[in-house]
Computed example of a mutant assay.
Amino acid sequence: MTRSVDAFADALAVFPGSEAERNAVARIAADLAASGRYERDAGHELAPAEVVEHLRDAPEGRVASRWNWWIGSLDLAYGGYGEFAVRRWRER
Rank of each mutant, 00 (worst) to 15 (best):
L76A: 14
G72I: 11
A77Y: 02
A42N: 02
V52A: 05
E50D: 07
R22G: 11
R27I: 13
A58D: 08
I28M: 03
A24P: 14
G72T: 13
L76P: 15
Y38V: 06
A20E: 14
E45Q: 06
V14I: 04
P48R: 00
V52T: 04
E50S: 02
W69G: 11
L76N: 12
D10C: 09
P16R: 03
S73N: 15
A34V: 08
A49M: 08
A49V: 04
G72P: 11
G43K: 00
V51Q: 01
V25C: 06
A33S: 06
D75C: 03
A11H: 00
A20Y: 12
V51G: 00
D10G: 09
E39H: 05
A47P: 11
W70L: 05
R27Y: 04
V14E: 05
R40D: 09
R56S: 09
N23M: 13
P48W: 02
A13C: 11
E21I: 12
L32S: 00
R22P: 12
E53K: 04
A34S: 03
A49P: 08
E53W: 06
G17D: 06
G72N: 07
G36S: 06
H44Y: 05
P59L: 10
L46D: 00
A47M: 04
S65V: 15
W70E: 05
A33L: 03
D41F: 05
S35K: 01
N68L: 14
A29R: 02
L76Y: 15
G43N: 07
E60F: 11
A13D: 15
I71V: 09
A26G: 06
A30D: 06
G17T: 08
